[in-house]
Amino acid sequence: MNGPDRIFDDRTPGVEENEPSASFLSYTAGLALAILATIASFVVSQTNLLWAPGVPVGLVVLAFAQIGVHLVFFLHLGSGPDNTNNIIALSFGLLIVFLVITGSAWIIANLNANVMPTAVQSSH
């Protein structure tokens, strides 16, 4: 794509170019890393390898590592110019996901701590 003969060509909309974005090797490397991260998650959660209060943090870190592996090796989200828009959209999506999850957890944790249970059937 960066060859001097390709730089000047005008593209009509919809013209395909056959640029292989992936290879057998990248998928295999992705699979190996993903299996490694999965097994590490199971080991961390089922053994006392990590200091007990740190286990959730370790699991979250491993989950993010594996999501990164999937994005790069399976979804081919790289740093190429064709991917810029995808990355921008992903970062916006991540912002919304982060706001929804941490916002809900934060608010409800606050309510749980500060509001007295009123119903008799309340489980706490």
């Binding site: 390709r6 730089i7 000047f8 005008d10 593209r11 909309p13 919809g14 013209v15 395909e16 170019e17 110019p81 064709d82 810029t84 828009n85």
Partner: peptide, 18 residues
């Protein structure tokens, strides 16, 4: 030409492939 070719799909160098 080089800079627009690299910015394909971001406004320069013509539309991105389908």
């Amino acid at each position: 030409a080089v800079s627009t070719a690299l910015a394909r799909g971001r406004g320069g160098g013509g539309p991105a492939p389908t």
